[in-house]
Nucleic acid binder design. Structure first.
Lengths: 223, 223
DNA sequence: GTAAAATTAGACGCCATTGTCTAAAACGTC
DNA sequence: GACGTTTTAGACAATGGCGTCTAATTTTAC
């Protein structure tokens, strides 16, 4: 029982997981065939059954794999939230770009959204943890981060939870149709969407002095 | 060839379409079986093949049926957009509730969102028309309606298209997780979500005098 | 009531897929 | 080079769904 043979096995496992994620995402659980996954993974079908007892075992493993990757990425992006109140618009815009690009519009985000919708009712327990650690955690963490900015006087927010959800929703406003159709936005589209979102967010929640685009008479008064 | 036998046939057709929509929505195209659809429709399998040549024909018919229903409902809801500028918050909130309840969070909306995601790549032409007449039309029409309100001086908007998308996005901010998981929000949740959305929308785009919840010093100045 | 049309239940062939099994080949370690 | 493990290719039975066909039954029109 060589403990070093694990390296080759591990590579095979990852190859299988990646291929299975691809095929499951495109075809769904019922439409995906083990043969196609094996072909994409450049692996024999028997090898798949060797690592994962049956199709459902493989599916669960794939979902859990993508979930942990997505959660790690979300944590990483959340830790880059701007803490400094100066130049808040650019800071929040860059953050929104990162959030959309690396957590929502990327492969894993697309996979999870799609699979939750198609197989969520069939495997309720499987996606329940993602619901808490994914979107749930995003709202909670973002709410706390916004609260800190508000505490510093950079934002004026009555309900932090609502504001957090609205920040995410605004960030996706211009991309919703693209994400719905599975298209990947370009960097320019990501940048523009985030800019629009943050402008509106700051018009609603920003300290009056920081707001750009406010009607001239008020801007004059506030400045 | 009695032209009156059409009535019974028509009832069967609708029964089949409803059942097929239900099963396709739950199981997807590949996972749905004609036998199950026949059972749900209380109809023989042969009857289905009598009306629709094959599974794909039935699927296309179902999608088109739901699309036309959804488009009609969207048109109806859009025609109820508040034109009067007085009490704009309540008017927009009621409109947002209608939009979410009857177009986005209902059965048809769930069906279309789910099926577009799962089968959109396999049938690009099928959903392309919906993309234009559904979400596309919503943005275009809403943009024009917001422009009229802005022209009357009730709103201050720089980019009507962006504002329209943000209105829709804000309206779904509190419901996104529910719609993602296929749950149907209660009337209270719909009402609360719409209220939060419109409050923020008006904070960003409302005429200063109409804005509630603005920081006190500014409200005093504007009043 | 009668004839035409529609519906039904069931059997059938066909094909794709799942999961198992076996023998051969490739791999890594000593 | 030898040995144990892993991988591979292919055959295999079993399952299930699609689409067709047929004969019996029901519904509808007149």
């Amino acid at each position: 029982m060589g403990g070093h043979t694990q390296r080759g096995q591990c590579a095979k496992r990852m190859s299988i997981l990646d291929a299975a994620a691809d095929v499951f995402c495109r075809q769904g659980f019922a439409g995906a065939s083990i043969d196609e996954i094996a072909a994409v993974a450049c692996v024999s079908r028997q090898t798949i059954y060797n690592h994962y007892r049956e199709k459902e075992t493989l599916f669960v493993a794939v979902v859990e794999d993508v979930m942990t990757r997505a959660n790690a990425m979300l944590f990483s992006v959340l830790s880059s939230f701007p803490e400094k109140a100066d130049n808040l618009e650019d800071g929040l815009t860059a953050f929104a770009v990162r959030l959309n690009k690396n957590c929502i519009c990327n492969h894993d985000g697309k996979f999870l959204r799609k699979l939750v919708q198609t197989e969520g009712e069939r495997y309720p327990h499987l996606f329940e943890s993602w619901r808490q650690q994914g979107p749930g955690k995003l709202t909670t963490a973002l709410s706390a981060l916004l609260a800190r900015l508000a505490h510093k006087g950079a934002l004026v927010i009555d309900d932090f939870d609502v504001a957090a959800r609205q920040f995410v929703a605004l960030g996706n406003a211009d991309l919703q149709m693209m994400t719905l159709f599975g298209e990947t936005p370009s960097d320019e589209e990501l940048e523009g969407a985030a800019r629009n979102a943050v402008r509106t967010f700051l018009k609603a929640y920003g300290r009056p002095a920081d707001v750009a685009g406010r009607p001239p008479e008020l801007a004059a008064i506030a400045g």
